[in-house]
């Protein structure tokens, strides 16, 4: 087979992605610009509403806080798992992988049991007489953040454990001999070496939690919308298809832009020459 005929092998995949990813996007994009009163009218209208800004802000806030918590929780356990003996590590990897492969509805539903009015936390606090009436934890931004952390923590751990296992322990020993205490070694030697993995994980989690639908739908309720649940509400509940398209495009732009920024930042932070 020569190179010319090899190109034909690309055609089905190429057409599949082009016809079913990009054409539909163009198709929903076109009507949003067809207005008598201006090209960007619908977008301007959308961005005029303070409610919509609230939704955008919430989307960002949830993604940002989720990344931070996932990182803080994910780093120590990844260090720990990555340094176990192989047999133990394999078992722990299975324990991390199991929630990762379990349906998101199931994982979010578990938190209804914990956070709800009748949930464990409220029952516990009531029993201790710390509160008089159940707290509203479910259907808040906090609930969405907790659910997102739970959803994305295994992904972060999974992507970090590999990099941890590859670390050369002698490098930390060298730091210790040069007078660096364990805390100093963690921040000046271990984390900088893990930086590329950490940043990749952060980008994954940020983009994922920013565009997730299931978690805000189950744990956020109707009054705590993010962009993805707003798209569904506009389209299916209110039947406002053009508006849903506008939000869809805004979501694409925002998430692509955030990922681009994070990539730039990570590229900037990773000072090591890439092809040495």
């Amino acid at each position: 087979m020569n190179r010319k005929s090899a190109v034909w092998l690309l055609v089905p995949a190429f057409m599949g992605v082009l016809v079913f990813t990009f054409f539909p996007l163009i198709e929903i994009a076109i009507p949003t610009f067809q207005n008598r009163n201006g090209f960007f009218l619908l977008y301007a209208q959308f961005l005029k509403s303070s409610y919509n800004w609230q939704v955008i802000g919430r989307t960002f806030l949830i993604a940002f806080v989720t990344v931070m918590i996932v990182l803080i929780l994910g780093l120590p356990i990844s260090l720990w798992i990555g340094r176990q003996k192989t047999a133990v590590r394999q078992v722990l990897n299975l324990l991390i992988l199991f929630p990762m492969l379990t349906n998101a509805v199931v994982r979010n539903f578990a938190w209804i049991i914990i956070l709800g009015h009748d949930g464990i936390i409220n029952k516990f606090l009531l029993a201790l007489h710390l509160i008089k009436s159940p707290l509203d934890i479910l259907y808040t931004d906090a609930a969405i953040i907790i659910g997102s952390v739970y959803l994305f923590l295994p992904i972060m751990i999974n992507s970090l454990v590999g990099s941890v296992a590859e670390l050369n322990v002698e490098i930390e020993e060298a730091a210790a001999i040069l007078g660096s205490n364990p805390w100093h070694t963690l921040f000046k030697v271990v984390i900088p070496q893990l930086a590329p993995g950490i940043l990749t994980g952060c980008i994954l989690v940020f983009a994922g939690s920013m565009t997730a639908y299931t978690t805000p739908q189950i744990l956020g309720g109707n009054r705590h919308l993010v962009l993805s649940t707003l798209i569904y509400q506009q389209a299916m509940t209110l039947g406002n298809w053009k508006n849903a398209s506008v939000i869809a495009l805004i979501l694409i732009i925002i998430s692509a832009f955030s990922m681009w920024i994070m990539r730039r930042v990570s590229h900037h932070l990773d000072r090591r020459p890439s092809n040495a």
Binding site: N168, I171, A175, L178, V189, P192, R271, R272
Partner: peptide, 29 residues
């Protein structure tokens, strides 16, 4: 503890800090 002893050590793998320049590696201690 190791980090309070005043020793120098050269490792078989050299164990240089990959994220630091030569200057910063030498300056670490």
């Amino acid at each position: 503890p190791v980090y309070k002893r005043n020793f120098g050590m050269v490792f078989q793998s050299y164990a240089l800090f990959p994220h630091l320049s030569v200057f910063e590696n030498v300056a670490f201690g």
